[in-house]
Amino acid sequence: MSLVAREVTIRFGGVIAVERMALEVSPGEIVGLIGPNGAGKTTFINCVSGTYRPHTGTVRWLGDELLGLSPSTLLRKGVARTFQNVASLHDLTVLDIAKLGASARKDRQSGGHLLDFFRSDSALERELLEQILEPLELADVAHKPIQTLSYGRRKAVDLARALAAYPQLLLLDEPVAGLTSHEGMAMAGVVRNVRDRLGCAVIMVEHKMDVVMSTCDRIVVMAAGSKIFEGLPAEVQADPEVRRVYLGEP
């Protein structure tokens, strides 16, 4: 197992958002994290990606403890994530965003920024265009400011940024929410392709069941901050407890 999370608990005031959550993910595996609103899925992702600091628990990646590390350090360790909502960033083009993502790959000493002044990045540009932007159908808008793009394409840009880091662990927070079903399925396809190519572990928080079912190798269901079920996609639909909390059936 590459990612091993145990006993992860985080409270906000008196509200327990995530309680004793455990999760294991192997390289090359896509795990779907589902559950009703407020189940703590995004909060859990935020704990893994360094945005929140849980009160208890451990999250180990290839044996290293991740908790307490900043997002920037995590990115250098190969942990990248996307966001539910995407920011509108003025003056930055699609390619700029991808380059920002790729910058995590450079292991730079301080003062390295000075070298950047004199370094050409045309090779990187070509690579990003071919490897990342082309598959996400962003190559034609690579030089456009992202605020001119549609919501769906901006989500693709956010994914491109995360992928440009060539992550080993990819955390996706509702990657297809707000997209048309056609766009959503295309995005899901890209995620599978990336997994195939990079062999990375993927955790995907998602509500759209068709996308989850067709993309994920394994599914974990959360409710009220805890894991209530874990299994293959087919098993999930059959489980009565999952149906009860998730679909509101008696």
Binding site: P71, K99, L100
Partner: peptide, 17 residues
Amino acid sequence: RSFLVLRESEIVAKGMG
């Protein structure tokens, strides 16, 4: 480029690593 992200939102910048 990271300055530009910083200008828009520190939270976004932090999230982007």
